[in-house]
Simulated assay, not measured.
Amino acid sequence: MQITAGLRIPQRLPALQVVKTSVAVALAWVVSQLLLPGELPIFAAIAAIFVVQPSVNQSVGKAIERSLGVIGGVVIAFVIGLIFGSSTWIVLLTIVLCILLAWALRLSPGSANQIPISAMLVLSIGASTPEYSIYRILETIIGAGIALIINVAVVPPVLLAPAHDAVALLGREVADTLDRAAASLRAPQTNFQLEELLLKARLLRPMLTAAEGAITGAQESLTFNPRGAKHRNSLRADIEQYERLKALVTRSLGMTRALRDHYDDSLHLEPTVQAFSGELCRAAHDLRLLLQNPDDPAVEMVPEEEPMLTAPLVIGTPHPEHWILIGSLMEDLRRVREEIVGETD
C-alpha cells in the first residue's frame, strides 16, 4: 500500500484543467497536421500536455522550458545523426550526452528532461535532415502556443480566496495567542498548562508558512492573467496584513516562551503583571479590529469601537525574581503595539 500511495494524489485535478488539456492536444494535433503534413505530430501533443498548467504564469514557464528543450535536443540529434548515423549505440550515447549537458548547464527539470527525450525521438523515428528537425521545432512551438492560448482564453483561475482565508486564520490565531497569554498571567498556572500554552503558540509557525505559500500561489495566479488587474488591490491588502502578522507571530512566540521559561507561582501577584495582562487583551482586541472585513463572513466582526491600546505601561520596580520576565514581556508588548497601530519605522 505504501509503495502505490505515491501514485495517487489527495484531490483530482480540476475538471476544467483536464478539459483544457484535452482541447489543447486535439487542436495542436489537427493544426500541426494541416501545416506540417507527413509525420504524426507527437512533439505538438507532448508540448500541449505539459504547457496547460493551473496558472498562466506556469504555462508561460512550461512553454519556454519545452520549446528550448526541444530545440536543444533536436539540434544535438541532427548534428550527431549527420556525423555518426542513428544506430542503437549512437542513440544511447546521445541520450547520455544530453543528460550530462543539461546537468552541466544547470537547466531546469523541464528543459533537462525534454532535451534527451527530443534527441531520442529524432534519432529513433526521424530522419537526419534539416527539414525534419525544423518541422519538429515548429511543431513544438505550435503545440505550446495553442496550449498557452487555451489556458489564457478559458477562465484562468484567480487564487485569491485561499490566500485571504489563510491570512485571516493566522490573524485570528495570533489574537487568540495573545488572549491565552493574558489569561495565564491572571492566575497560577501548572507546568502542563504552560507547556500547552507554548505548544499552541508554536502552531503559528506552520500557519505562517501556509499563509506565505497561499500568497505566493495567488501572486502566481495573477501573473499574465487577463483578470489580474482588478484583483491586485485585494491581494496587496492581504500581503500587507501578512507582513504585519509575520512580526506579530515572532513577538507572540517570544512572549509565550519567556512566560514558560521564567514563570513562578507568585507572578500573578505583581501589580504590573495584572496591568500587562490587560494590555495583552487590548492588543488582541485591536488586532481583530484590523482583521475584520464586512464583506468576509469568515472573519468574526468586532463591535465598532475605538482601538483600546494605550501608550506602553510605566512600570515600577518588580520583584527581583520577576524583573527579567517582566522586562522581556514589556519589550515584546511594545513591539506588538507598534505593529498594530502602525508606528514601526
Rank of each mutant, 00 (worst) to 15 (best):
residue 205 R to H: 13
residue 131 E to G: 05
residue 58 Q to L: 07
residue 335 R to E: 12
residue 153 A to P: 06
residue 18 V to R: 13
residue 268 H to V: 09
residue 155 V to L: 03
residue 7 L to C: 15
residue 34 L to P: 11
residue 202 R to A: 13
residue 68 L to S: 13
residue 164 H to F: 09
residue 277 S to E: 01
residue 160 L to T: 06
residue 231 H to P: 15
residue 204 L to I: 14
residue 247 A to I: 03
residue 60 V to P: 07
residue 134 I to H: 06
residue 190 T to V: 08
residue 56 V to D: 05
residue 157 P to N: 00
residue 118 S to Q: 04
residue 202 R to L: 14
residue 112 A to V: 08
residue 345 D to L: 13
residue 60 V to D: 04
residue 266 S to I: 06
residue 174 V to D: 01
residue 63 A to F: 07
residue 343 E to Q: 13
residue 191 N to I: 14
residue 73 G to E: 00
residue 67 S to L: 13
residue 264 D to C: 08
residue 269 L to M: 11
residue 26 A to G: 07
residue 195 E to C: 06
residue 271 P to M: 15
residue 245 L to Y: 01
residue 254 G to Y: 00
residue 2 Q to S: 14
residue 296 D to S: 08
residue 315 I to E: 03
residue 203 L to D: 14
residue 317 T to Q: 15
residue 156 P to I: 05
residue 323 W to M: 12
residue 308 M to A: 08
residue 26 A to V: 12
residue 292 Q to S: 02
residue 240 E to N: 12
residue 9 I to C: 15
residue 64 I to N: 07
residue 167 V to F: 01
residue 90 I to P: 01
residue 215 I to M: 02
residue 181 A to D: 12
residue 7 L to A: 15
residue 55 S to G: 02
residue 319 H to G: 10
residue 89 W to L: 10
residue 150 I to L: 02
residue 192 F to C: 04
residue 130 P to T: 05
residue 69 G to N: 11
residue 237 A to T: 12
residue 160 L to V: 02
residue 75 V to E: 00
residue 287 L to I: 06
residue 165 D to K: 01
residue 219 Q to K: 14
residue 73 G to M: 00
residue 48 A to Q: 04
residue 88 T to E: 08
residue 236 R to H: 11
residue 72 G to E: 01
residue 139 E to W: 01
residue 112 A to M: 05
residue 30 V to N: 13
residue 235 L to G: 09
residue 104 A to Y: 10
residue 191 N to Y: 06
residue 204 L to R: 07
residue 194 L to E: 06
residue 8 R to F: 06
residue 70 V to L: 06
residue 248 L to C: 06
residue 94 T to P: 00
residue 269 L to D: 15
residue 231 H to W: 11
residue 321 E to Y: 11
residue 260 R to V: 12
residue 30 V to P: 15
residue 49 I to C: 13
residue 159 L to F: 07
residue 243 E to I: 06
residue 67 S to V: 14
residue 231 H to Q: 14
residue 173 E to Y: 01
residue 103 W to D: 15
residue 17 Q to G: 10
residue 331 E to Q: 11
residue 341 V to I: 15
residue 22 S to V: 06
residue 86 S to N: 13
residue 86 S to A: 14
residue 74 V to K: 00
residue 16 L to E: 08
residue 270 E to C: 04
residue 197 L to G: 15
residue 299 V to L: 08
residue 169 L to I: 03
residue 158 V to M: 14
residue 62 K to V: 15
residue 28 A to F: 01
residue 252 S to V: 10
residue 2 Q to L: 12
residue 232 R to P: 04
residue 40 L to F: 10
residue 4 T to Y: 08
residue 78 F to A: 00
residue 3 I to C: 02
residue 141 I to C: 08
residue 294 P to T: 03
residue 101 L to E: 07
residue 250 T to D: 02
residue 201 A to C: 10
residue 314 V to M: 11
residue 36 L to C: 11
residue 54 P to L: 01
residue 241 Q to N: 13
residue 57 N to K: 09
residue 7 L to K: 15
residue 266 S to R: 09
residue 258 A to G: 12
